[in-house]
Design a protein around this nucleic acid. Structure first.
Length: 916
RNA sequence: AGUCCUGUAGCUCAGUUGGUUAGAGCGCUACACUGAUAAUGUAGAGGUCCGCAGUUCAAAUCUGCGCAGGACUACCA
C-alpha cells in the first residue's frame, strides 16, 4: 500500500513538538522563512529585552506566544519580519544579586572590592540564565534571532545611548536639580517615579503614628491663643513617620480651614493643657459625651457641672473632659512660633524655622489639619518650606540611619525593616529589652513621657517599597539629573493618541492619565553597573560638557592630555570611525574606567564626570536606536525599522518599557516608537491568585511544556481568554484543549490518510476551482455538503484573517476550534464516511477527498501562528512542505452569499441529523 | 481617595448595531451509538445575566448610583 500520507497510532503532542523542532533546526526553517521574504515589505517588531538574571516563568510563555503569533501571521501574509533578541543587562536586580552572592553591601564597593572587580562580577552574573531562556524560547516555538541579540552592556549599545543623551542635552531637555525623591537606602539609590509605579511597590503596612504636641511660644502673633489658656498651649500635628520629627522645621495649616483651641488634659501626663487643631477633626480625638458646654465661659459664669468635670478629673480613668475655648481660621495661625520639638540640631542653611505656615495641600481627611513639615523628607514639605524661607534638617544619612547629632538614636536605622533579624536581636539587647523597639516606637515613648504626645497608635496605610529590595522607600533630598519630559507633554499626549492600544482602555486610561500627570524623569542612579552619565563638570559646576560619541570623547581626551590634565589616553587603542567589533572591544565605557577620565574645560579647568549612572529603563527604551548602533552604523536599517509596527509585553510595562520607548521616541525623533502595542494581562493560578514563589503556586514552564507540548499550552492560553484579560491558569484546561481540538484534528487527518493511502489519492487543486457564493458554476461533482463545508471554511478564513490583523488571536483560535470540532470532524466526516469507504473510484469520491484535503490544508495554515508545531507536521504530511514557508491562503472575495450558503446548509445538516 | 478592567449555569467563557423561549464546552443524570474516534449523539437537571433606578414598544446589552473582585495611580502629613 502506498503510504504517501503518514498514519499515526496516537497523538503525542510533546513528541510532535520535539520532532518538528529538530526538523526546524536541521533545515533552518526560520532562516528560510526570512530568506523567502527578503526584499518583501517589512513588518517591524521590537523584542523587549528580558533580564537574563532571573528564571523565566509561565507568564513569559504567554508573552512570547503572543509576540510569535503576529510575527508568524505577518510572515504568512508576505512580510519580512526580522526579530532580533535582546538582553537587559544593567541595573539594580543584577547588582543586588551580586552583592548577595559576594556577601557585601554597597558600602563595600570600592573598599573591600574594587569597582572593576565588582563590575566584572556583574557582567559575568548577568548572562547566567541565558541558556535557560534560550531553551524556553526555542521550546515554545518563539522564532527569534538568538544568535545576534542586542546586549545593553556592549560598547556600541552604550555609545548609541550616549548619543541620545547628548541630543537631549543639546535641546536643554537634560538638567540637574536638587529635589526630594524616592530613595531606597537598602539599594543605595534614588528611584524614578515609574520604578515606584511597578506593581506591588505600594504595600499596606502598620506603622506607629503619633500626634505630637508643639509648644507655642508666647509673642505678639500667638497672643490670641493664650487667652483663658489652660496650662501650656500646643499645636497638634499627626505623623505616620515619627522618625522625621527630629527634622521638623515647620507646621503647615490650611489658611481657609477652621481651627479651634481646646481646653483639656494630656492623656499621658494628665497635665492641664490647651491644644490647637482643625475643627473638622475634633471627633477623631475627643469623645462627644465629655464635651463641656462653651456658653458657660462666654457668659462668664462657670457652671457647677463644668467646674466638677475639670476639678474632678480622674487621672486613672479613661474619660477626659474637654471644651472648645476659641475658634479661628488657619491664616490667623500663620507666623505663630513654637519650640523645637526634639532639639538635636539647628537647621541647615539658616532660614526662619519653627513657625506655622500656610499650604493649600492641607486637608482635614485625616490627622489634625496641621501638617508636620520636614523639608528633607517630603516633596510638599520642601516646596512649601522653600517658599517661606524655612531651612531643613537632614538628620538621616544615605543608608537610612540617624546622624550622630541625634544623640538618643545615633547610628540607628529609621525603619526596623533595614535591620536583619540578627541585627534586630542585637539591638534589642543593647536597648535592654526582650523585644526590639523601632525608633518610631521609642520616639513615641519619649514624646509621651515628655508630655509632647497626644495620641500614639498603630496606623495601617499604603507605603511605597523598593521594587527590588522590598524594603520601604524614604523620601530624601538628592542631587539628580532629570529628563525634562514635561516640556514635551503635549506631544507625548498627541502622539499617544495615534497608537493602537490593545486593549484600547490601557492607552486612554492607564497610560493616558499617566501622561496627563507627567513628572520629569529622574535619570540618576548612584550605582556601579550601568551606563555612566556622559557629563563632565568643573568642581564649581560652572562649565560642563556632554559627550555624545567615542570619537568626541577621544578628541576631548586629546585636548586634556595636551593641556597636561591627563597623562595619557586610556582608549589609545581605539580608532575613531572604525566600526569593527574588534575595535570596539578594546574599549570599556563602564565605571571605573570612565571615572578616570578628566577632561579640560574651555577655560582650562579640569572637569570630572558626574558619578551617577542612568536609569536602566533608559537602556531598554533606547533599543530602537541602540540595537543597530544608530546613528554610527546601519542608518538605512534603522530608518526602515522605526517605528515598530507591533510590540507586546505585560501590562506591567505600561509605565515601564512602553513609557520609556514612547518618551525617548517623542523627545528625540518626534515620533511614536510603535504603532500597535498589545499589553497582556497577568497569569494567575486557577483560583485567580497571583502566582508567586512565596505562595508556592507558580507553575514551572518547563514541566508544563514537557507534559502537554507547546502547542497545547499556547492554544489553551490564547483560546481561553483575550491576551489582555487575566488568565486563570488551570492545567485541566490544557487537557481539554488536547482532547477536543487537537485530537479532533488529528483524528480527521488520520481518517483521511487511511483512505487516501488505500485509494492512492492525488491532490488536484483544479478540481475545487470554485468560489463559494460566487456565480461561477462549481464542479458538479461537489455535493451540497462539500459546498457547505467549503463555504464554512471560506468564512473561517476571512474571520481569522480579520482577527489576526486586528490583534485578536482569541477570536481566531475559537473560530478555528469550532470549525474543526463541529463542522469538519463531527458533521462533514461523519455524514460523508461512506463516500470514502466505497469501492469504486469516481468523481463523487474524488470530490470528498479533495474537499477534506482542502479543509485540512487551510486549517493547518490558519492555525500555524498559534500552534506552530502541530500545524507544521500536518501541513508537511499533506504537502511535503513547511507551513511556515507557505503564503496565507488566498481567500475568495464573496462573503455575503457565502453566509447565506452557510445558513442554508445548516438546515441541510439539521435535516440529515434528524434522519440519521 | 482617584483611574481602568471584570462580574452571565457548579467551573472556564460566548453573547455582534438593544429584538423570539439567554448559549457553548467541561462536570452531573438517563438513554443510545461505537466499521477514524481513550470518542460521539439524544434527552434532562442547573440562571434574580452582581444589585437598584432610569431611557425604550423592547435591556445581559445603553445611562446613572451602588456592591464585590482585580490592576494601576497618589506629594497622602
Amino acid at each position: 500500500m502506498d503510504k504517501r500520507f503518514p498514519q499515526y497510532d496516537e497523538l503525542d503532542l510533546p513528541k510532535v513538538g520535539e520532532e518538528v523542532l529538530k526538523q526546524w533546526e536541521a533545515e533552518d526553517t526560520f532562516g528560510q522563512s526570512l530568506e523567502l521574504r527578503k526584499g518583501a515589505p517589512p513588518f517591524v517588531f521590537y523584542e523587549g529585552p528580558p533580564s537574563a538574571n532571573g528564571l523565566p516563568g509561565i507568564h513569559h510563555v504567554m508573552a512570547r506566544a503572543i509576540k510569535d503569533i503576529f510575527c508568524r501571521y505577518q510572515t504568512q501574509k508576505g512580510h519580512r519580519v526580522d526579530r532580533k533578541a535582546g538582553w537587559d543587562t544593567h541595573g539594580l536586580p543584577i547588582e543586588l544579586g551580586v552583592e548577595k552572592e559576594l556577601g557585601i553591601t554597597k558600602e563595600d564597593i570600592g573598599k573591600k572590592i574594587s569597582i572593576e572587580e565588582y563590575n566584572a562580577a556583574c557582567k559575568k552574573a548577568v548572562m547566567r540564565y541565558t541558556d535557560v531562556w534560550n531553551d524556553m524560547t526555542r521550546r515554545i516555538g518563539f522564532w527569534l534571532d538568538l544568535e545576534k541579540p542586542y546586549v545593553t552592556y556592549h560598547t556600541k549599545y552604550i555609545e548609541s545611548v550616549w548619543h541620545l543623551l547628548k541630543k537631549l542635552y543639546d535641546e536643554d531637555l537634560l538638567y540637574k536639580g536638587y529635589t526630594i525623591q524616592p530613595y531606597s537606602p537598602a539599594a543605595g539609590t534614588g528611584l524614578s517615579s515609574h520604578e515606584l509605579n511597578q506593581p506591588g511597590t505600594y504595600k499596606p503596612v502598620k506603622d506607629t503614628s503619633a500626634v505630637a504636641l508643639f509648644k507655642v511660644k508666647p509673642d505678639h502673633a500667638s497672643e490670641f491663643l493664650f487667652k483663658d489658656a489652660f496650662g501650656d498651649v500646643f499645636i497638634m500635628a499627626w505623623t505616620t513617620t515619627p522618625w522625621t520629627l527630629p527634622s521638623n522645621t515647620a507646621l503647615t495649616v490650611g489658611p481657609k480651614l477652621d481651627y479651634v483651641r481646646v481646653k483639656t488634659f494630656n492623656p499621658y501626663t494628665h497635665e492641664p493643657q490647651t491644644v490647637v487643631l482643625a475643627k473638622a477633626r475634633l471627633n477623631a480625638y475627643f469623645r462627644p459625651d465629655q464635651e463641656q458646654p462653651m456658653h458657660a465661659i462666654l457668659s462668664g459664669a462657670l457652671g457647677v457641672a463644668e467646674e466638677d468635670a475639670f476639678a474632678n478629673y480622674d487621672k486613672n480613668g479613661k474619660l477626659i473632659p474637654w471644651q472648645i475655648i476659641g475658634e479661628f481660621y488657619g491664616h490667623q495661625l500663620e507666623g505663630v512660633r513654637y519650640e523645637q520639638l526634639l532639639p538635636y540640631a539647628t537647621p541647615e542653611g539658616g532660614g526662619d524655622a519653627f513657625k506655622v505656615i500656610g499650604g493649600d495641600f492641607v486637608t482635614t481627611e485625616d490627622g489634625t489639619g496641621v501638617v508636620h513639615t520636614a523639608p528633607s523628607f517630603g516633596a510638599d514639605d520642601q516646596r512649601v518650606a522653600r517658599q517661606h524661607n524655612i531651612g531643613s534638617l537632614t538628620l538621616v544619612d544615605l543608608r537610612g540611619r540617624f546622624k550622630p547629632e541625634v544623640t538618643d538614636f545615633a547610628g540607628e536605622y529609621v525603619k526596623a525593616e533595614y535591620y536583619t533579624d540578627g541585627e534586630r536581636a542585637a539591638e534589642a539587647i543593647k536597648q535592654g529589652r526582650d523585644k526590639y523597639l523601632s525608633v518610631d516606637e521609642r520616639i513615641a515613648i519619649k514624646l509621651k513621657t515628655e508630655g509632647r504626645a497626644f495620641r500614639v497608635e498603630k496606623y495601617e496605610h499604603n507605603y511605597p517599597h523598593c521594587w527590588r529590595t522590598d524594603k520601604p522607600v524614604l523620601y530624601y533630598p538628592l542631587d539628580s539629573w532629570f529628563v525634562r519630559v514635561t516640556a514635551k507633554k503635549d506631544r507625548l499626549i498627541a502622539l499617544n493618541k495615534t497608537i493602537n492600544w490593545k486593549p484600547e482602555s490601557t492607552g486612554t486610561g492607564r497610560f493616558g492619565n499617566w501622561l496627563e500627570n507627567l513628572q520629569d524623569w529622574n535619570l540618576s542612579r548612584s550605582r556601579y553597573w550601568g551606563i555612566p552619565l556622559p557629563i563632565w563638570r568643573t568642581a564649581e559646576g560652572d562649565e560642563e560638557l556632554c559627550i555624545g560619541s567615542l570619537k568626541q570623547l577621544k578628541e576631548e581626551i586629546a585636548k586634556s592630555v595636551k593641556a597636561g590634565v591627563m597623562a595619557a589616553d586610556p582608549y589609545a587603542s581605539f580608532k575613531a570611525d572604525d566600526m569593527s567589533d574588534a575595535n570596539y572591544d578594546t574599549v570599556d565605557l563602564h565605571r571605573p574606567y570612565v571615572d578616570n577620565i578628566v577632561l579640560v574645560s574651555p577655560s582650562g579647568k579640569p572637569m570630572k564626570r558626574e558619578t551617577d549612572l542612568i536609569d536602566v529603563w533608559f537602556d531598554s527604551g533606547s533599543m530602537p536606536y541602540a540595537q543597530w548602533h544608530y546613528p554610527f552604523e546601519n542608518e538605512a536599517t534603522f530608518k526602515e525599522k522605526f517605528p515598530a509596527a507591533f510590540i507586546a509585553e505585560g501590562v506591567d510595562q505600561t509605565r515601564g518599557w512602553f513609557y520609556t520607548l514612547h518618551a525617548i521616541a517623542t523627545l528625540t525623533q518626534d515620533s511614536v516608537a510603535y504603532r500597535t502595542v498589545v499589553s497582556n494581562g497577568l497569569v494567575l493560578d486557577k483560583v485567580g491568585q497571583k502566582m508567586s514563589k512565596r505562595l508556592g503556586n507558580a507553575v514551572d514552564p518547563f514541566k508544563t511544556l514537557d507534559q502537554y507540548g507547546a502547542d497545547a499550552v499556547r492554544w489553551y492560553m490564547i483560546s481561553n481568554a483575550s491576551p489582555w484579560d487575566n488568565l486563570k491558569f488551570d492545567a485541566e484546561g490544557i487537557t481539554e484543549v488536547q482532547r477536543k481540538f487537537f485530537r479532533a484534528l488529528f483524528n480527521t487527518y488520520n481518517f483521511f490518510a487511511l483512505y487516501a493511502n488505500i485509494d492512492g489519492f492525488e491532490h488536484d487543486p483544479s478540481f475545487l476551482r470554485w468560489t463559494p457564493g460566487s456565480t461561477e458554476p462549481a464542479n458538479p461533482a461537489l455535493t451540497e455538503l462539500d459546498r457547505w463545508v467549503l463555504a464554512r471554511l471560506n468564512l473561517l478564513l476571512i474571520e481569522c484573517d480579520k482577527a489576526y490583523s486586528d490583534y485578536e488571536p482569541t477570536v481566531a483560535a475559537r473560530a478555528i476550534q469550532e470549525f474543526v470540532v463541529e463542522d469538519m470532524s463531527n458533521w462533514y466526516v461523519r455524514l460523508n464516511r461512506r463516500r470514502f469507504w466505497k469501492g469504486e473510484q469516481g468523481d463523487d469520491k474524488k470530490a470528498a477527498f479533495q474537499t477534506l484535503y482542502r479543509c485540512l490544508e487551510v486549517v493547518a495554515m490558519i492555525s500555524a501562528p498559534i500552534a506552530p508545531f502541530f500545524s507544521d507536521r500536518l501541513y508537511r504530511d499533506l504537502t511535503g512542505k513547511s507551513v511556515h514557508l507557505s503564503n496565507w491562503p488566498v481567500q475568495p472575495a464573496a462573503t455575503v452569499s457565502g453566509s447565506e450558503m452557510v445558513s442554508a446548509m445548516r438546515m441541510i445538516v439539521f435535516v440529515s441529523r434528524c434522519r440519521r
